[in-house]
Design a protein around this nucleic acid. Sequence first.
RNA 1: GGCGGCGUAGCCAAGUGGUAAGGCAGGGGUUUGCAAAACCCUUAUGCGGCGGUUCGAAUCCGCCCGCCGCCUCCA
Length: 494
Amino acid sequence: MSLRVFNTLSGRREEFTTRDPGTVQMYICGVTPYSDTHLGHARPSVFWDTVIRYLQYRGYRVRAVQNVTDVNEKVAARAALEGVSERELAERYHDDYDEIMDELGVAPVDEYPWVSDHMDDIIAMIEGLIEKGHAYEIDGEVYFDVQTYPEYGKLSGQSKDELVAGSRVQVDERKKHPADFALWKKAPEGMESWRSPWAPGRPGWHIECSAMSLRYLDFGFDMHGGGTDLIFPHHENEIAQSEAHQGDEPFVRYWIHHGMITGEDGKMSKSLGNFVTVRELLDEFRAEVLRHFLLSGHYGKPLTYSRERVTETKRAWKRFVNSVRGLREVLDSSPREEVLLAEEEAEPISAWAERLRSDFCAAMDDDFNTSRALGALFEAVRGANSVINAPDFVLSAEVYRALSDLYDQIEICARVLGIWPREGARPDQQPAGVQAQDITDDLLELLVHVRETARESKLFDLADEIRDGLKELGIKLEDTPEGTRIRRRDDHAG
RNA sequence: GGCGGCGUAGCCAAGUGGUAAGGCAGGGGUUUGCAAAACCCUUAUGCGGCGGUUCGAAUCCGCCCGCCGCCUCCA
């Protein structure tokens, strides 16, 4: 099986091959840190984190770069409002982003280049474009000349002339062509600016990604990610600049765009005020649940957020975790008898681990179909449950081996998706009043023992009172044939 | 106006020519002192509508209806 990905540039799924054997170089459009991290930031981060894990699982080395757009008018506006420098403000919000990503289990990428640290690279690239005749200066500002780049529009399917016709923006009459875009512009009054061969000013939006991706990756690198909202003009312009500058193509082999997160009433965005921060979600749900939710639909499609939907996902995830834990308990505690498994099954359970592996990979190979991958995981879990819950279940050495292999494969797949329960993760609910953790294991054992005795004496009211009382403290008791299972709120799904 | 996407069960969602994954909710059962957890069975002769191509269509083509995104330095 080979990996196939949907490439926005061609508009279809293509077989994925790398620029350099065994290594994937990727550039992911990152954040503009000027406000709290919201769900719209979490989707791409979790998606790309999953892609990276999967590629590594498949044996690739991955080099990933994600820019930090700290030179930005919104950053500047907010900084001015608060009376701090742009850098200071950006650092504060980027710290928030880092913290959130850590809690979501998103591994850091290799490089996080900041625009303000790369002005030399940006200026050098603009100078190169001027020298090659692809850019021109007007009054201290520099514009890219789209007419020198015939392929302009190939990513978004826009034609530069039709763009003008339907444009909602006022066209700057000084430009040679209305679609020409700024590479360097003068800073508005009072805004920080950088020295340049033209006038003191600030880089255009798109040039940073061209300059920084080439700084850290090789021209013609493998994947470039970002939201569908960036296809035009951001990525279209990035291609134009980069390929014109290099005099070669392609700048990027595969363009991969994720769909927007929407609220139930349309796109989630700061300007509409209908966004939800990741912080508030993490206060209510575990990170694994959020990841599961974000991966429940195909990345390329829009995803509608609502509290109810995440709550549904939480129920699904809890079932997954409970099942996996049940399997673990069977593998850990039951005696192993040398009894042969009845072989009436059409497919022996010894094949289940391999089936999960192959279904999971087939799904992920098919343009990172995490929805299908999740389906494969749930099928595996149900299979395991039906075996260990069968009335005549006997854990023979043979069955033990099969289930053990299956457990390991479930863990591997769940870790790729980042939904494997993490130790020490935040509980998904904040306990109130007396904390469950205030009750020591010794005390808890005593209570459970007393309850056992009560049950043996058929004093069920007393037993239920103990169980109900502990439940209120966040500790659940479950009676199983092997004895009473203790579930503290913070060490499982809740 | 231009470009692109979407419409599959009560809800979410996979499925790009071969006879509808998975999850949530609901119903019935097994197990349990009762719960919990788990398992089993159950819910789409049909995939927005109407035509067409084909031995065969949710999948391809045409038209229509509905929703959404981008064309604004928004992930």
